[in-house]
């Protein structure tokens, strides 16, 4: 197994893990972390597969990952500030359907 296949497989595994956590975790902070894992999985796949021809690295995926990180940071900031306002409004950092009875 080549190194880039290993990276790709790890990326796929992390993506599934993040997706699973996003569905089953109830605390919003954990959901936001799950989304960040999903993002990192994608970045790993992009960088792991970034080669052009033989061993020449391909700069395009690296540029994509840099942009992706900026987007992920902004989205995480928005999610965290929304979570704080939810906490202030209802006392728990959860969505209404995940509230304990």
């Amino acid at each position: 197994m080549s190194l880039s296949t290993l990276y790709a497989m790890t990326g796929v595994a992390l993506f599934s893990l993040g997706f699973h956590a996003l569905l089953v975790q109830r605390h919003l902070l954990r959901k936001v972390l799950a989304l960040n894992v999903l993002g990192s999985a994608t970045f790993l796949l992009l960088v792991g597969m970034a080669r052009r021809g033989g061993d020449t690295p391909d700069p395009v995926p690296h540029a994509m990952v840099l942009t992706g990180i900026v987007v992920a940071v902004s989205a995480t900031a928005l999610a965290l500030s929304l979570a704080r306002r939810l906490k202030a409004a209802q006392g728990l950092v959860r969505l209404p359907e995940d509230m304990p009875e």
Binding site: F15, F19, G39, A41, L46, G68, A79, L82
Partner: peptide, 28 residues
């Protein structure tokens, strides 16, 4: 609307990341 917005954000980001993962596969 805060809870609705939060759910919307999670769904929207999941959708975009699925798109990006697809883009990564297509590019590779």
């Amino acid at each position: 609307s805060l809870a609705a917005a939060m759910r919307y954000l999670l769904v929207s980001m999941l959708g975009s990341l699925a798109w990006l993962f697809g883009v990564a596969l297509l590019y590779s």
